[in-house]
Simulated scan of single mutants.
Amino acid sequence: MPELVPPTVRLHRAWLDARAEWGPGQHEDGFGLSASDEVDSPEGFADWVGRLAAQADPARTIAVGRHRCTYRWIVERDRVLGAIALRDGDDDYVRWAGHIGYGIRPSARGRGLAAWALRRMLDEARALGLDRVLAVCVAGNLASARTIERCGGVPETGTGPARRYWIAL
Rank of each mutant, 00 (worst) to 15 (best):
M1W: 01
R13D: 14
R13E: 15
R13P: 01
A14N: 11
W15H: 15
W15F: 15
L16T: 11
D17R: 13
D17V: 13
A18T: 11
A20T: 13
E21N: 07
P24V: 13
P24S: 14
Q26E: 15
H27T: 14
D29E: 03
F31S: 14
F31I: 11
E38W: 00
E38F: 00
S41L: 06
P42D: 03
E43Q: 13
E43A: 12
G44T: 05
G44K: 02
G44N: 03
D47C: 02
V49S: 11
A59P: 00
R60Y: 00
A63L: 05
V64H: 07
R66G: 03
C69L: 07
R72F: 04
W73E: 11
I74D: 06
E76G: 01
R79K: 14
V80C: 09
L81T: 05
G82M: 07
G82C: 11
A83L: 08
L86M: 06
L86A: 06
D88P: 02
D88L: 13
D91L: 07
D91I: 12
D92S: 11
R95A: 06
W96D: 14
W96Y: 13
A97T: 10
A97K: 08
Y102Q: 06
Y102V: 10
G103R: 02
G103D: 07
R105G: 15
R105S: 15
P106T: 13
P106N: 10
S107E: 10
S107M: 12
S107Q: 12
A108K: 07
A108Y: 08
A108G: 08
G110W: 09
A115G: 09
A117L: 01
R119A: 13
R119S: 10
R120E: 05
M121L: 15
M121N: 07
D123T: 06
A125E: 02
A125G: 06
A125K: 05
R126A: 13
A127H: 14
A127I: 09
A127F: 09
A127G: 09
L128Y: 03
G129L: 06
L130S: 11
L134C: 05
V138D: 15
V138H: 12
G140S: 08
G140M: 04
N141K: 04
N141E: 09
S144C: 00
S144I: 02
S144N: 04
A145I: 01
A145S: 09
A145E: 11
A145W: 04
R146M: 02
I148R: 05
E149Y: 01
C151G: 04
G152Q: 04
P155W: 03
P155Q: 05
P155K: 04
E156T: 12
T157K: 09
T157S: 14
G158S: 11
G160F: 08
A162Y: 05
A162P: 00
R163D: 04
W166Y: 06
I167P: 04
A168V: 12
L169S: 03
